[in-house]
Design a protein around this nucleic acid. Structure first.
Length: 271
DNA sequence: AAATCTCCCTGTAGGC
DNA sequence: TGCCTACAGGGAGATT
């Protein structure tokens, strides 16, 4: 599923093609996504020029001058640059065709993604206004996470996956980061020591940064998510490895459910 | 307020 | 082989 690195890779990939491009026509084949695609967006965006493409958490913001197109890929969504010659496939829900013939094509089998047209300041929109800091920013520090977590009883894994705490830490990365930091996922957030919190923040940053670096190397006419862990699958230490031996101590990794999410950890290495 | 639960959807994997 | 069911998961919104 598209995690933050995939979204950032997508941002880079489409920005290279679309910055300065003028919209000719937008076609919506399937309006029913996470929320209905904004009514009238086709008319609003027509003739506009893409002046900027930003990422906030796992959201993409296409600045169109008279408004912002907010896109989330959900867990099976992808954006790619297509040409008119390419046949429309199943689940290709939206096309944005540009005057230069390029097409930005949104594909999303599970329809957990969204595409909304925002007027005015996009960051005051409810979907964006409550988001916590970016994980790779200086604002996301061990002192920040430590202070915010005090007296919180929620499991530390659920805590770092809460987008109000920090954005972009999905299930896979939460599992991996907790293993790397040697913290048991079920531990109440408020009981994690300062030193462990430092290890956790450090793990989150290093994993995300290296994944972005890997994803950022292979842009062509592209873009992005095939829906699988892809390039970092081979480097996963716990996710998807329940029952297999821990790479550090050899004990079988354990799987539990935490907040309806698959959680894998080593009962020996993660105190 | 904080924690937990529910739901949206469809491709895939596993059971038989 | 093919059918059937369970399951996965981001994250908003409802519920406890």
């Amino acid at each position: 599923m598209p995690e933050l690195p995939e979204v950032e890779t997508t941002r880079n990939g489409i920005a290279a093609h679309l910055l300065g491009a003028r919209v000719k026509e937008m076609t919506v084949r399937q309006r029913q996504l996470r929320w209905p695609v904004t009514a009238g967006v086709e008319q609003a965006i027509s003739g506009q020029t893409i002046s900027d493409i930003q990422r906030r958490g796992k959201y993409l913001l296409l600045d169109c001058g008279n408004g912002v197109l907010l896109i989330h890929l959900g867990m099976s969504g992808s954006l790619r640059i297509a040409s008119g010659a390419e046949p429309v496939k199943k689940h290709d829900h939206v096309d944005i065709e540009f005057v230069n013939k390029q097409i930005l094509r949104f594909h999303d089998p599970r329809k957990f993604g969204c595409m909304l047209w925002l007027d005015g300041d996009p960051f005051s929109h409810p979907l964006l206004s409550t988001l916590g800091p970016e994980p790779l920013s200086d604002e996301f520090s061990d002192s920040y996470l430590y202070r915010l977590s005090r007296k919180r009883k929620v499991p530390i894994k659920s805590f770092v996956m809460d987008s109000r705490v920090v954005v972009g830490v999905g299930n896979i990365y939460a599992n991996e980061a907790l293993f790397q930091a040697g913290i048991r996922p079920t531990r109440p957030a408020g009981t994690v020591s300062r030193a462990s919190m430092q290890a956790l923040v450090s793990a989150i940053k290093s994993i995300l940064a290296s994944a972005i670096a890997l994803g950022g190397t292979t842009l062509r006419d592209f873009v992005g998510g095939d829906g699988k862990p892809g390039y970092f699958r081979q480097s996963l230490l716990v996710y998807g490895r329940a029952g297999l031996a821990c790479g550090q101590c050899g004990k079988a990794l354990r799987e539990i459910r935490l907040g309806q999410r698959s959680t894998v950890y080593c009962t020996r290495c993660q105190g």
